[in-house]
Each structure stands twice: as C-alpha cells, then as structure tokens.
Simulated assay, not measured.
Amino acid sequence: MRILMAGASGFLGTRLVDRFVADGHQVTRLVRRPPRAPDERQWNPSAAQLDPALVAEADAVVNLAGAGVGDRRWTDEYRRIIRTSRVDTTTTVAITIAGLPAEDRPAVLINASAVGWYGDTGDRAVEEDAPAGEGFLADVARVWEAATRPAEDAGVRVARLRTGLPLDRDGGMLKPQLLPMRLGVSGRLGSGRQWWPCLSMADFLDAVAFVLARDDVAGPVNVVGPAPVTNAEFTRELARQLHRPAFLRVPAVALKVALGGFAVEALSSSRVLPGVLTRAGFQYRHPDLPSALHAALTT
C-alpha cells in the first residue's frame, strides 16, 4: 500500500513509519522543510499548501501531526500552537482529499486525535459514543476531529484515533518518570486516583495497522489498553518493575507550579475503554499494565 504520512518525525510517527515499512508498505513522508531524503515531500499546512498529486498517488493518508502537549509550559502562545498545529494540518489534508476526483481519492484517512476528547471522566468508564468533555484539550479535540469532515463528506473512510498513553522508555509520558523513579524520588501525582489509559507501544502500532486494514472500522477509535489503571496503580507497578520504593506523592500544587496549564490535564482522569477495537476483534499483545510496562522497559 502507498501511504502518505504527516507527523512522521514525531515520537509515535517514527515508530509507525518503521512498522509500515516492515509490513511492506511504501511510505512518503510530508515535511515542512526542503526534502532531504528520497521518501520526503514538502508541504506547508500553515498556508494550506499540499500538492494534490501527492494525495492522488496514495492509497491511504495517515496524519499524526501536532505539537507535543507535555513538552512545554502552556503559555497562551503555546496553547495556540497546540491547536493550530493540529487543525491546520488536518484541514489541509481533508480539503485536499475532498478536492480530488472521486477516482483519485485515497481509500482512507487515518487521523490522530486524543482521549482528551472526553475531558475528565472521573471514575466513569467511557467508549467512543461518549460526548466531548470540557477543558482545553477537549476543545482542541472537537475542532481537530471536525477538521476531517470534508474528507468524510467526500465518501472517504475516516478513522479518528483517540490515542491514550503508549508506553516507551525512550519517549512519551514514561521517559521522564524513569530517572526520578530510579533515584527513589518519584511517586503518585496528586491523589493518584485519576485513571490513565495506557497501552504498550506494540499494541499502539498493531492497532493502527489493524485500522488501516479494516474497511469496516471508521469514525472515532479509542486506541487505549483494555484495562485502564489509576496513577497510583501505575506508580506502584513501575516501582515494582524497577525495584524502587514508591511512597512519595507529588502534590497537585507542585505540579501546577512546574507544569502550568498542563498540570490540569496531568491530574485529570481518563477512564477510556477500547469499544470499537474490542468489538472488531482486535487482539492485544499486552492486555494488562504489568505486561505493557515490562515490554516498554525491556524492548
């Protein structure tokens, strides 16, 4: 399959490119700078510039583009970047797809979204039919997902990946926790009662490949593990696997000082279940936290 991909240089994108290539697909990566490799093509989503011929050549488009939400303090300017980096890219892709003749459109658009769609769910478990919640990331997710509408209205299968927390020792939310935990100075965040929708990196990659191959999977797809855990449970299991204590607690006020606006999201609860994947028969390699964390720490 010929796959045109945006966001291929990010934490998840680089791993997904490797997976697609290993599966025998041909991947063309969209970059904003001048191309430096044979598989790169330039675009400028900020100016809504994407060569329609590139899209017409693709069997599938995968868009994971977006600025990191946990990389920096949330100033007003960075909030704008978080939003526009997602909405501009998705809008450009979807409108370009819709503008092609029907016979030239790719069969599927797989577009990133996030479990932030649901806001803080507390102890309430939610699946894909739950409405959008409240808060900054929920607001971003609403307009992000809505930006795929032109492609969907044009008859293209669109899957919106509401991704949770893929575990990998080299990135994502796990990496910054490893050194403090190894030094014995880490612990649960706030109350520790907030739910975290974790999954192994292998299961994330398998899930995207599954959605790509399944013509009957469309709309929102929760890409999360089947057994969400609380932050306290996550912290205890990570400490156990690293053979370190986990008796400390990071107060909510300290997080707010260190992280600014992102602290609200770090302390929120996302008890999100993979309803669509489960009903479609997706099989997890690592269906629980101990196996998912072990995979992240040893592979």
Results as ranks from 00 to 15, higher is better:
215 D>L: 13
111 N>S: 15
217 V>A: 05
180 P>H: 12
109 L>C: 11
214 R>Y: 01
175 K>Q: 15
163 T>A: 04
242 L>Q: 03
96 T>P: 04
245 P>A: 15
231 N>T: 09
24 G>T: 13
164 G>N: 10
201 M>T: 08
99 G>W: 04
238 L>E: 01
230 T>N: 09
17 V>I: 08
8 A>Y: 02
190 G>V: 06
74 W>F: 13
248 L>Q: 05
179 L>E: 05
245 P>I: 14
91 T>H: 03
113 S>E: 02
17 V>A: 01
125 A>P: 02
104 D>P: 00
180 P>S: 14
181 M>F: 11
71 D>W: 04
220 P>V: 03
258 A>Q: 12
235 T>C: 08
153 D>W: 03
86 R>C: 08
105 R>Y: 10
223 V>P: 01
29 R>G: 12
176 P>G: 12
179 L>H: 06
264 V>W: 00
127 E>Y: 00
289 L>C: 08
236 R>E: 05
142 R>W: 07
82 I>R: 00
147 A>M: 09
30 L>F: 08
6 A>F: 12
170 D>T: 14
245 P>R: 13
282 F>W: 15
6 A>H: 05
11 F>L: 14
276 V>T: 11
2 R>E: 15
117 W>Y: 15
169 R>V: 11
131 P>L: 13
89 T>S: 10
129 D>Q: 14
113 S>R: 00
